[in-house]
């Protein structure tokens, strides 16, 4: 094989893996949109909040310690030196479920029957609140997150592939971050579990009913509120997983909430209501972005086009297929 081809394969593989991350975040959006009709702009901040909370539990940080110290001149820091990652994750999950409950109780319940756009803007407000509260609780410094997932280049893969290049060419093997491999495995497990849950359990059926038609679901006795809490909880959980992955890679800081913005083109591409759309769309965007960065960005010599390239890709696609990848053809009725 030629080096170009091997490099291409490496790029695609890396693209697929970063695409998995986009898919995960997009999945959180889609679940909430299907079940409660809300375009949850706070999904990215959910991920940030979950990661902050996880680090907080792990290191035993006292919530609001900065604030208390400033107000009363105390010097509070930690409850305990450290906590096992597994326990910390469990506690974080509990926190995310409480958060989901609070969102339903304090926000969604009061906005029933409002226009979608009002709900959307309410989630922008929610994003602000969570960002502010997260910072107040845990401080805004960059934190290291390590729950024991290995990271760094895969030496095994490098050694295995080094001989693939044709004789005499300079090739050092493929580079793939182990963290991404783990992320992919975890995402696959997560999505499979979700699919099984929604197909084969009673709650899952209720969930699908709500996604299809709120009124009809209500009329057969499904409690919308508990389904909403469930769905927001699941999305919080997915956000946590995404937060762990991104946080491990580049530290827990405000920019983590911006991954939501990266997942939005996935939504346009895959459609707001399609779970397969979110997954395939995420992979496509991941690959497209990496390829574009190397082959277009390199060509133009202006770099850093990944900020908007995904959007343009999604938009161009949309011009030809307004209903997205897996959406049904839109028939407007009057």
């Amino acid at each position: 094989m030629s080096v170009e081809l091997l490099n291409f394969i490496e790029t695609v593989l890396n693209g697929l893996m970063s695409g998995v991350m986009y898919s995960l975040v997009a999945l959180g959006f889609v679940l909430i949109f299907k079940a409660s009709g809300v375009f949850n702009f706070a999904q990215g901040v959910f991920a940030l909040f979950a990661a902050l909370t996880l680090v907080g539990f792990q290191t035993g940080q006292i919530p609001f310690s900065h604030l208390i110290n400033e107000l009363f001149g105390t010097n509070l820091h930690n409850w305990y030196p450290s906590l096992h990652s597994f326990l910390a994750i469990l506690l974080t999950i509990v926190t995310m479920i409480i958060l989901a409950w609070l969102v339903e109780r304090l926000v969604l319940r009061h906005l029933v029957n409002q226009e979608p756009i009002i709900l959307f803007m309410a989630t922008i407000g929610l994003a602000f609140v969570l960002e502010g509260v997260g910072d107040l609780m845990w401080g805004s410094d960059v934190k290291v997150l390590d729950v024991g997932i290995p990271s760094g280049g895969s030496i095994w893969l490098e050694e295995a592939t080094i001989g693939w290049a044709s004789e005499g060419s300079e090739y050092y093997g493929m580079y793939i971050d182990v963290l991404n491999v783990w992320a992919t495995i975890i995402a696959v497990i997560l999505v499979t579990a979700l699919a099984l849950f929604s197909q084969y359990t009673k709650t899952g059926r209720a969930l699908r009913a709500v996604a299809d038609d709120h009124q009809a679901a209500l009329s057969v006795g499904i409690s919308l509120r508990s389904i909403w809490i469930l769905v927001w909880g699941i999305s919080g959980f997915i956000a946590m997983v995404a937060g762990i992955m991104w946080g491990t890679e580049s530290g827990v800081q405000f920019s983590l909430s911006l991954i939501a913005l990266k997942a939005l083109p996935v939504l346009i591409l895959g459609g707001f209501t399609s779970i397969p759309g979110a997954i395939i769309g995420g992979l496509l965007i991941g690959v497209g972005e990496k390829l574009a960065e190397i082959y277009i960005g390199g060509l133009l010599d202006i770099g850093a086009i990944e900020n908007w390239f995904a959007y343009v890709l999604a938009l161009v696609f949309l011009l030809f297929r307004p209903q997205g990848l897996f959406g049904d053809k839109i028939i407007e009725r009057v």
């Binding site: 304090l106 926000v107 407000g125 994003a127 602000f128 609140v129 960002e131 502010g132």
Partner: peptide, 10 residues
Amino acid sequence: EITTWGLLMV
């Protein structure tokens, strides 16, 4: 301030 903005918005 950020929190207050968000709260007011909601």
